[in-house]
Design a protein around this nucleic acid. Structure first.
Lengths: 256, 256
DNA sequence: TTTGTTCATATGTTCATACATACCAAATAT
DNA sequence: ATATTTGGTATGTATGAACATATGAACAAA
């Protein structure tokens, strides 16, 4: 019998890709695979993904599992499905084009691209009223405080203050120049899952003007952030002061 | 044979709830039902939802369909699942408690709670370079411009400028004092789905200080927003100027 | 008292299957 | 030439069944 078996463009081998014996759920493996796949320029340019039935056959799994994976990406707005047509990468060119009005975006912040640490200070601070309330711990407890100034080559852009919950078990001797959340994941079994943020605008005071090299009274984007683990336990409390002339915060929101 | 058939607390009748003949997908009906169900104080207080198998049996549908519905709510962080235990309402108390550091939140903005319109101005503006680029239309095209000042009883808080894509078909005679997106939905078949935002901090200039009743040089939270329909077509281009002393922007973010 | 073990229960994953519905384009009728 | 029908293809919805795995509680052993 002649099986057609189209090659899926941009995909490595015929199979070997999905590991049925892995502990990782199949849908998760597919999701991963798709993420890599759709990075390819052809898909970025609007080419339809291989259809679900073919893909399932190709990977040796059921269509439901393929759907489970694509569903996630659709929910994340990475993919767009169209009934009777197919699935393709969402046109996110809008984002990049519209973001021209700012030179710095949230993504860069998250991935730490191009950013370097200007200064790093680690200290232990005794919890005051605010910290004890945020972390729900006694007022006298010592909390690890991490201060960072980060920016691009020529200038500082953001001033971070991080407080870490004692539960995480940081000693202060860790290498904080490495990506923070990776470090927490690998060395402290702490996974950062959600972060809740509040953003406001303030004016630079003496300290901020000194740290960020701006004039007193310059506008500063102020962000408070609380990071949780999957069990919704607080991991980190983070204050961020961004130079408003160099930084814009970009967000996608869904409307019910 | 004795069937146990537990009553599901807080639920109306035994059935009649799920309408198999409805055009609405079952999973959607279940989702709706769950949304209403978990509003009940008992579930808000941490009571476990009825388990999936029971619920499926109770509603006369398959477990998969129940899961499809709950999945959505889990993704929205309304529900938390725990293997071997059950599903319950996510403890969102964290949000509300932590938000005390600001008096105004994003939610209030979205729902328009307590806000009233101070002034309203409708005009037609000829697209300049920026607008023609954003809307991808000719430079000479006329675009409906809506200016609003909104706030609470005693003071203005935010100054909005909205531009609407000609495709939407607004005439300028609409009642813009009604909730905007409802109006678009009902009267212009235009559903607002996602909005992409950029947030920055600026200083109040003469115009803003006049409109928002603040001093020149006061910090202003500046937001650009583009609103799309489900087909990712641009509906609205919106500029928002928020008094930073009265407004904080609150966001939940997921970390991959 | 503490530490294993077992067991019931609930969610987590996956499959095979079926039918519904939207879209597009080619064939056909007007 | 221009509607209209129709078939092919794709996603959308829904079922039922099975097995995997995490949790917590009851129970038993150290």
């Amino acid at each position: 019998m002649y099986e057609h078996m189209n090659k899926i463009p941009g995909m490595q081998q015929d199979s070997f890709i999905i590991d049925h014996s892995s502990v990782l759920p199949l849908h998760y493996q597919v999701e991963d695979l798709l993420r890599k796949l759709i990075e390819q320029p052809e898909y970025q340019n609007g080419k339809l993904l291989p259809n679900e039935v073919d893909l399932a056959k190709k990977l040796g799994i059921s269509r439901n599992t393929v759907r489970q994976a694509t569903n996630k990406l659709v929910y994340e707005r990475l993919l767009v499905r169209k009934k009777g047509v197919g699935t393709k990468v969402a046109s996110n060119n809008i984002t990049t084009k519209l973001n021209k009005w700012s030179s710095f975006t949230h993504e860069m912040d998250e991935k730490g691209v191009k950013f370097k640490n200007y200064s790093l200070k680690i200290s232990w601070e005794v919890a005051d009223a605010e910290l004890s309330k945020v972390f729900k711990i006694d007022k006298k407890t010592k909390i690890l405080k991490l201060e960072r100034v980060r920016g691009v080559a020529s200038e500082p852009i953001v001033y971070f203050i991080s407080y870490f919950h004692p539960r995480v078990g940081l000693t202060g001797d860790e290498d904080f120049s490495k990506p923070l959340y990776e470090m927490l994941e690998n060395e402290h079994h702490t996974t950062a899952v959600i972060s809740r943020e509040g953003i406001s605008a303030i004016l630079a005071d003496d300290e901020l003007s000194e740290v960020l090299k701006v004039a007193v009274g310059d506008p500063i984007l102020f962000r408070k952030r609380v990071v949780f683990d999957p069990g919704e336990r607080l991991i980190e409390y983070n204050l961020g002061y961004y130079r408003a002339d160099r930084f814009t915060y970009t967000i996608d929101i869904e409307r019910g």
